[in-house]
Design a protein around this nucleic acid. Structure first.
Lengths: 236, 236
DNA sequence: CGGAGTCTTGACTCCAATCAACAGCGGTGG
DNA sequence: CCACCGCTGTTGATTGGAGTCAAGACTCCG
């Protein structure tokens, strides 16, 4: 049996029906302001843990569930016209994947865990059914939708323009680290490249250059960095 | 007095309270499935016409209204870290600008008409008030939100990656023209550049090259093109 | 007419893609 | 145990494509 808290790569552990009423994270998640009684009915919520590289859903599949991220990191990937794939968004704790299940048919992206990730999987059907009864839920969903849009805009303006140095600096500063923090997960060079629309080699070189300048330091899968130095590079 | 149907540049014409019940476009717009009686109450809807270059709202302003596009073309612009500005989305008939007015505080973008544009301006407050009563409206809003997200993803994967030729080809084929059509509005080179994250000069050269190859033709502010030829270029 | 704004074209530079080789690491299996 | 393999990351040499700078053409309007 796999270790439940740290599943191996590509593994998915189903951990049973969730009991949202006792959820320790509820106030930060989708059902924050929903009254307890709403959680009894049609709503199907399952807890799951996905190991790194495990796939939540594939682009084009019928969208039946949405996923609320409790902990970890998930990438949404879309195939580009030339065959390569681009990371369109990263989802952290509190974010929701698969919102398209509420409006229509099929998933737009492939969702894959980057870190071991704890999720709640919610059946779209049940959610739609109670959505109309509880306006708090509609409000909360709109917040998530807006959040997704903000993230998308960030990718457009921050991560798809300017020099390689600028993009790498901005992804570390704004996308991957908490505001004010000076460290963040060290994504693989491939993921950084797919997120920044650069090649692996360019990302590798750029990070190496930052290390040489003493602005960035990497150990045990974590980047530590000098916010001031990166900030200067970010305007390039 | 300005000609109402073709206002001059930067001009804004307020055309009074709208009567949605007799709206010829209603079925394609936000209130498509809303019962007539819902339109009587708190809802404030005004018809407006914006000339080219007229600004609907500015980034950072308090978001009080949302705008439903009846006809025309609007760009959403965001300032990039280096000071230049990037077009993050284009809005056509049926699209909605300023959805952020429903979730929180301030506009994320500057919205500016590219073509003379007919709009309905809807007070966010009134909409929020009736949103909870009419689930059809929530549904319709979710559709628009999803639509915005799809557009954003399109900008990320189609318009921010690959060679200049590929990007220009894709913007003409997929973003600016109706599916199956072989013509579209000829945006200014600046707007194309801001949308594709290229320089004006590169866009100009690329379009010129397409013209030389005979796959694009420009007259009276319209591009005519060979779908097959552009399709080949789009995979670059 | 002149002027502002838009578009085009040329010459040059430079940054990132490409192609290629190799190092390090963990895992697998003989 | 070690040899081998796949995966990730690094580095170098070279190329190509887009950015930059600059000049000039064109159009629309006052």
């Amino acid at each position: 049996m796999t270790n439940r808290s740290h599943p191996r790569c590509r593994e998915i552990n189903w951990q049973g029906q969730a009991n949202c009423k006792v959820c320790t994270l509820r106030k930060g998640l989708l059902f924050a302001r929903l009254p307890d009684e709403a959680l009894d009915g049609l709503l199907s919520v399952e807890r799951m843990v996905h190991g790194a590289k495990a796939v939540l859903y594939q682009e084009g599949e019928p969208a039946l569930h949405l996923y609320s991220v409790r902990e970890g990191l998930v990438k949404l990937v879309q195939r580009a016209p030339n065959g390569s794939s681009r990371i369109v968004r990263l989802l952290k704790s509190g974010d929701v994947a698969g919102l398209e299940s509420l409006s229509d048919g099929r998933y737009r992206h492939t969702a894959e865990a980057i870190l071991p990730t704890h999720l709640c999987r919610i059946a779209a059907e049940g959610l739609s059914a109670i959505r109309h009864r509880y306006s708090e839920l509609s409000d909360e969903l709109m917040q998530r939708w807006q959040q997704s849009l903000d993230r998308a805009d960030e990718v457009i303006t921050q991560l798809s323009t300017g020099t390689a140095q600028g993009r790498v600096a901005r992804v570390l500063l704004y996308t991957l680290s908490e505001p004010g923090s000076n460290r963040c997960v060290a994504l693989t060079r491939d993921d950084l490249a797919a997120l920044l629309s650069l090649t692996v080699e360019t990302v590798s070189r750029t990070v190496a250059e930052f290390k040489r300048q003493g602005i960035v330091n990497e150990e045990h899968g974590v980047f530590h960095f000098d916010r001031l130095g990166l900030g200067r590079a970010a305007t390039l």
